[in-house]
Design a protein around this nucleic acid. Structure first.
Lengths: 240, 240
DNA sequence: CGCACTAAAAATGTCAACATTAATAGATGT
DNA sequence: ACATCTATTAATGTTGACATTTTTAGTGCG
């Protein structure tokens, strides 16, 4: 009887717990994704399979699979018989990305206002407090990118909508992170961000989807406007 | 002089014209995509690499790449060391997809109202006329799915926003087509669709983004509501 | 000097075999 | 009959080699 329980626990530990499935292909995906987002691999540069395979000491098979996945994340553009290149983020395309983000994330927060559970909302407060603390200790600065992402990702997850989560976190945010990381002027958010974040949380707590959506939309439109003003009349890949 | 022109034409024909780049991998992607959308490969069924490779008489390399791409289209779910399965469309996830579609496509039509050129709008009229003709000749029916897609795709393209076009046409519509194709009750659109389509075109012609967005949102919300009512209390993969 | 042509080099696309992990079937014991 | 262990089978992950295409370098000609 006891042995049965012990065996069951052992079974559970081995099978249900953290799969931790490293597959070389997925590790390569992460490695390349990070290298592209940080700019270590430059925009527009070619991802040569033979060269990368040598450098990373892997065969071309898993590498090609990783490239196919990055293609699905919009991080690279692939032309048959010619290879893959990192996408080039012109100001124009970044503004288009922000339009998509506006549509999706404003919808996400509306759903979050309805669907978020209390513990999830508590988490939002913790993230707000961390941002407030950072601003207090480093006056004159603004919210660092990582902290900003953490907040937005928590809200997006609060929508409890798998499709919207996928489209935002997997398809859209990789490009936004790439842009912000490689653009000094966009590294941190605006000075009003904390206020707007607080308003978002307030609207969610009030279970007011319409208000929450409006505030988030404004928040993202502001961000887009700042980009548009900063890079007015600039057409080519975003520089520092 | 003449030889020069001939040579240039030859050059043009060889290089610029229809790339038609058959790469086996991309053909497999299309083949499998269609088989999944039509249900020829059933929801939840496993995509066995070895079996498919034998059946289609190809090696596993290109097949795996095709599977990675379908993964990016949300048509299949892949678990490391266990293989890939076709996604299962529960009513719940379909409704979530329609929420995402609502957010994106209402934004798309707002942009289209600003960005569409006259010839593009003429095309919309042709599509409307085709739909009207169909309804006249087959009274009592509704717009067939193909014609409905053609209209929505034309509007989406009218947004001139690459990101939104990608998220809708590449990531979202494949799933919507899969659902509608495999669900008899969702094959054709509602009887009000033509009226709503006309209103969309009217708003675009008036260059009224707010109106266009509102109408499109209603149009998609109606579709979602119909699905919700039809499949109320049904939790598992959509059947006929 | 520039343009077309040609040959060599390198890159991508594809295949088949090997390695490792998961699924299956059979045997054993209770 | 049921569960557990084990051996076999089969599937996925990875590698290296081959085939084909593209790119590059070099040559000759106007």
């Amino acid at each position: 009887m006891l042995t049965f329980l012990v065996r069951w626990l052992f079974f559970y530990a081995m099978t249900m717990a953290a799969p931790h499935s490293h597959t070389l292909s997925s590790e390569l995906t992460d490695t390349l994704r990070d290298a592209i987002i940080t700019g270590e691999i430059k925009q527009g540069s070619k991802l040569s399979e033979t060269r990368l395979a040598k450098e990373l000491d892997v065969s071309r098979g898993p590498l090609r699979e990783a490239i196919r996945r990055l293609e699905g994340m919009n991080l690279i553009h692939h032309v048959p018989q010619q290879g893959a290149r990192v996408v080039e983020l012109s100001v124009d395309i970044v503004l288009q990305i922000y339009h998509a983000r506006e549509a999706l994330e404003s919808k996400a927060v509306a759903l979050a206002a309805t669907n978020m559970a209390s513990p999830d909302i508590d988490e939002l407060h913790r993230l707000l407090d961390a941002q407030a603390k950072h601003l207090k200790e480093n006056s004159g600065t603004s919210i660092p990118a990582e902290s900003d992402y953490a907040f937005h990702e928590a809200v997006i997850r609060g929508s409890k909508n798998r499709m919207i989560k996928h489209l935002l976190l997997h398809e859209t945010y990789s490009l936004i992170k790439m842009f912000r990381y490689q653009t000094a002027a966009a590294r941190s958010s605006s000075t009003n961000s904390l206020i707007e974040h607080r308003q978002v949380v307030y609207a969610i707590e009030q279970r007011d989807p319409v208000l929450a959506e409006a505030i988030m939309r404004q928040h993202i439109v502001h961000a887009r406007d700042r980009i548009e003003q900063r890079f007015a009349n600039q057409q080519q890949p975003v520089s520092h």
